[in-house]
């Protein structure tokens, strides 16, 4: 009966491995407060850094047990996970929405169940939360624009030069980072001083940015002053291409990225590869501060929104 035997073995193995995995996850803890964080996608370095910071900050407190769910970029999964979280009646629910509409319903359900909800980093259209903690991509874009104008003025004596823009994929963050910078740059473009010589979409990815920057370099014959990339990996991809073609050009070019993660952008600025990056705050410290107040002080009323400031990181 090999067929039956193997079917039995398969069932046994599946059950056993599921149990083992479940055992790894659920550790019996008698902490006073339960905090559940529904993360949109662990795989992005920015979000991995958020998780790490949450674990660090809540880990300092013995009275808090933190559980992190990962929706892995899947909207249905995020809805399920929030619903699962509600059933565990946490003292605080933190949601980093995958997009601005999908988690509306379950977040409303959580509030109806009397659970305190913090919406992190990406706002929702339903606004079913006690407070939103986030940052402003448009403001960051404006900071980048101002840096570019300043750097060009230092180089040419006036805000004048040729610019290449490497865009992210078409989501709100991309539009905001573009619009913010161009709010500052547009007057100089209209005055014929700053010229956008090439624009390409590299979808936030370094590999793609290298391909697009190679084309941009060849198309412009190396005649440009500024690279404005919507994130640091794309900015660094552009740097690698320019360096490969002409070491001096890589030193002369003004290369600007955004995000300022410790393991990426900050290191690249320190190495002198990028001229500047603008930190996109993790929002975690603020969320823990406000969250703990909400848990411990029943009279505390958080503000509707907290918008955190970005921080420029410059070098070269």
């Amino acid at each position: 009966m090999p067929a039956r035997l193997s079917a039995f073995t398969m069932i046994a193995l599946t059950t056993l491995s599921t149990l083992l995995l479940a055992g790894c996850g659920g550790s019996g803890s008698d902490a006073k407060y339960l905090v559940i964080f529904c993360q949109a996608n662990n795989a992005e370095p920015y979000r991995a850094a958020q998780n790490e910071r949450f674990e660090e900050l809540f880990g300092e407190r013995d009275d808090v047990k933190l559980v992190i769910y990962d929706a892995a970029k899947n909207g249905t999964k995020q809805v399920e996970q929030i619903e699962q979280a509600i059933k565990q009646q946490p003292d605080l629910l933190i949601v980093a929405p995958l997009n601005n509409a999908t988690p509306n319903k379950p977040m409303e359900k959580a509030q109806e169940a009397g659970i305190k909800v913090i919406c992190l980093e990406r706002n929702t259209t339903g606004k079913h939360y006690d407070t939103f903690i986030g940052c402003d991509n448009k403001a960051i874009g404006r900071m980048a624009g101002e840096f570019i104008v300043k750097a060009l003025t230092e180089k040419h004596g006036e805000p004048k030069g040729k610019l290449i823009e490497l865009k992210g994929s078409e989501i709100q963050a991309m539009n905001d980072r573009h619009d913010g910078a161009f709010e500052v740059l547009q007057p100089h473009i209209d005055a014929g001083k700053i010229e956008v010589v090439h624009t390409a979409t590299a979808n936030w990815a370094k590999t793609e940015a290298r391909a697009k920057m190679t084309e941009a370099y060849n198309a412009t014959e190396g005649d440009f002053d500024v690279i404005y990339a919507h994130n640091d990996p794309m900015a660094h991809g552009a740097y690698l291409v320019i360096k490969g073609k002409n070491e001096q050009a890589a030193k002369d070019a003004i290369i600007v990225g955004i995000d300022g993660l410790a393991e990426e952008g900050v290191k690249w600025v320190e190495a002198g590869d990028l001229d500047a990056t603008f930190e996109y705050p993790l929002c975690v410290d603020k969320a823990v501060e406000i969250g703990m107040k909400m848990i411990e002080d029943p009279d505390f009323k958080p503000e509707a929104t907290y918008i955190l400031d970005s921080r420029p990181i410059t070098g070269k």
Binding site: P45, T207, L240
Partner: peptide, 10 residues
């Protein structure tokens, strides 16, 4: 080698 790193978008 080309990206000078390993990152999850690769």
């Amino acid at each position: 080698a080309l990206d000078e790193n390993a990152d999850s978008t690769q």
